[in-house]
Each structure stands twice: as structure tokens, then as C-alpha cells.
């Protein structure tokens, strides 16, 4: 494999990792606050649809993004209502949200556009443009580093950079602010937070809200950046891969970046090479598809470092009387 090909694969890794990363950080906020979220998939899906639909109707990718953020956050608050206010089962609520999004998107898409559950293809200002970073073309002739800068680092859409920036931001919010400390505390020992006179409910709703916004970014990028328009079930399990990445990263932001890049790389390789020939042994493409899930099971089994989730995860908080 030559250098140009390598750059292409890494470039596609960046783009494929972005929705995973945004969704993974979304799950990080929610689960750190003690609200388990297996509805990442559904929130991405509904954001993908509304972004594409509104972008197609108005021709503005920004309005599309707004619609994606709003729809995803609304769905997130349904999850909050079920799991915080009504103290329901968070896992079941997440499953319900995934199905709600899978059904509603196709239903509404069919009603609005009549194209069998898809939006029209986005053109022009309905999609994110690729940003060329300063001096990308000037530096291209520089050996090795020039193409690296021009092809890999430069030339992505805005949301890719937003995703990357969100990693230190998430780290800073969670580990360097009072809000972050309280948010983490609410996922470990909500009774302590309550004793300190801070609202457990309020913090958890805030976390769920942030989760909705980040899922909205992820879905929006999927439909208006990575691809040009919405198709039925276009998240294709990415929400679950993000969940796997979250466990793989043991609920930590920088590790989340690493896990998402790894899973993005697997997707990029599977996309480019159907079957990989390794000197006589052929690795079928399905192995690449299944690898994120297999790795997560191995991590969960605790054979390679144990993944310990936030202690109060999944437990609705009941104030003692």
C-alpha cells in the first residue's frame, strides 16, 4: 500500500469516525450522569432525517442542522421523562426511542417527499462544504507532511472539526468545571449530590439535553455531510457502535476519540477492500463488520482491562423520605 492510498484510507477514517465520536461523547455525558442511553441510534436517525428534510426544503444546511438538533433533543427529553421523572426502565425506554425514530422518519419522509422513505438528494448549500485549511495547497509540495496536511487534516466539513474539538471540550467540562464534577457525582452517588443541596433531577436533565444536542450533530453530519440526503435506517447500527466505543473507552473522552478512530478505521477498511488477503489467509469483509462488536465483548468480559460503568447508571433516583 503506497502513501497516497494510506492517506485516502485515513481520510475516510476521519469522516466515518466523526458521527461515531459525536454520538459516543453524547452517550458519555448521559451515562456519566447515571442515565444509560441505548437510544443513541434513534436520536441520530431522527436528527439525520430532519436535517436532510429541512435542508432539502430550505436549501440551507444551517437550518437543517437546527432542525436536527431540535428533533434529537426532543427525543432525548422523552427518554429523560421516562427514566428520570417517571423512574422507568432506561434500557426499555432506549429501545422504544430507537423504534420510534426508525418508524417516524420513514413515515414522515413518505408523507413529505413520497420517495419511499428517503429525502431528495441534497445539492449545493444543502450540504456542508469541505473547508480548506490555510496554506493547504501551498504546502502540498512539501514531502510527506504536505499531502498529510492537505489531504488528511484539511478538506473536511465543519462538523468533523467540531467533533474533534468536542473531545477536549468534553474533557474540560467533565473534569475541570463544577458542573462536570456534579454531573459525574450524580452518576456515581446521587444521594451525596442531593445531600449537598444540588438537584439530581436538574443535573440529569441537563446531561440528557447535552446528549440530545451531540446526537443531533452526529445525525446531521451523517445526512448532510457524510452523505447527501436521508435514506431509511441510514444510521445502520452506528449508534450501537458508538455505545461499544463508549464502553471500549471506559467512559473517558480522550479514549473515546481513540476508540472511535479505531472503529472508523475498521469501517473505512471494510468499505475500501472487500476481502483482505494476508498472505494466503483471506479475511472476509464480514469480520471487519463484526470486529467492533467482538472487541467490545472482549473488553466487557474484562480480559483486557475491566470496563467499570458509573455506579449509579441505570438506577432511577428516589429521594428518601
Amino acid at each position: 500500500m503506497d502513501y497516497a492510498t494510506l492517506l485516502q484510507v485515513l481520510d475516510s477514517t476521519m469522516r466515518l469516525a466523526t458521527p461515531l465520536l459525536l454520538a459516543c461523547l453524547a452517550g458519555l455525558f448521559s451515562e456519566r450522569a447515571g442515565v444509560i442511553d441505548i437510544g443513541l441510534e434513534g436520536k441520530m436517525l431522527i436528527a439525520a432525517f430532519f436535517s436532510a428534510a429541512i435542508a432539502a426544503a430550505t436549501g440551507s444546511v444551517w437550518l437543517g442542522l437546527l432542525a436536527g438538533l431540535v428533533s434529537s433533543t426532543l427525543l432525548s427529553f422523552v427518554h429523560g421523562l421516562a427514566s428520570i421523572t417517571f423512574r422507568g426502565n432506561q434500557l426499555i425506554s432506549g429501545v422504544a426511542i430507537n423504534f420510534l425514530a426508525a418508524g417516524l422518519t420513514v413515515l414522515i419522509a413518505q408523507d413529505w417527499f413520497g420517495q419511499g422513505g428517503r429525502t431528495p438528494s441534497l445539492i449545493g448549500s444543502g450540504r456542508w462544504e469541505n473547508i480548506t485549511l490555510p496554506l493547504a495547497e501551498t504546502l502540498r509540495p512539501v514531502p510527506v507532511l504536505g499531502p498529510l496536511y492537505a489531504d488528511l487534516i484539511s478538506g473536511h466539513s465543519l462538523l468533523v472539526y467540531v467533533g474533534l474539538v468536542m473531545v477536549p471540550v468534553t474533557w474540560w467540562v467533565l473534569f475541570r468545571t463544577r458542573f462536570g464534577l456534579r454531573l459525574r457525582a450524580v452518576g456515581e452517588a446521587p444521594e451525596a449530590v442531593d445531600t449537598a443541596g444540588v438537584s439530581v433531577t436538574g443535573l440529569r436533565y441537563a446531561a440528557v439535553g447535552i446528549c440530545g444536542l451531540l446526537c443531533g450533530l452526529a445525525g446531521s453530519y451523517l445526512a448532510t455531510g457524510l452523505q447527501a440526503g436521508f435514506v431509511k435506517d441510514m444510521t445502520a447500527g452506528r449508534g450501537y457502535i458508538a455505545l461499544a466505543a463508549l464502553i471500549f473507552a471506559k467512559w473517558r473522552p480522550w479514549s473515546a476519540l481513540g476508540a472511535c478512530l479505531l472503529f472508523g478505521l475498521l469501517q473505512a477498511v471494510a468499505l475500501r477492500y472487500q476481502n483482505i488477503d494476508l498472505g494466503g489467509i483471506t479475511i472476509p469483509v464480514q469480520v471487519m463488520d463484526a470486529l467492533p462488536y467482538i472487541l467490545t465483548v472482549v473488553i466487557l468480559a474484562g480480559f483486557v482491562g475491566k470496563a467499570i460503568p458509573p455506579r449509579a447508571g441505570g438506577e432511577p433516583y428516589v429521594k428518601e423520605r
Partner: peptide
């Protein structure tokens, strides 16, 4: 699922 499971 939502009403019988989560919003019970």
C-alpha cells in the same frame, strides 16, 4: 414499548 415498559 414506551408506555408498557418505560412510562409504566
Amino acid at each position: 414499548i414506551l408506555f408498557t415498559g418505560a412510562l409504566d
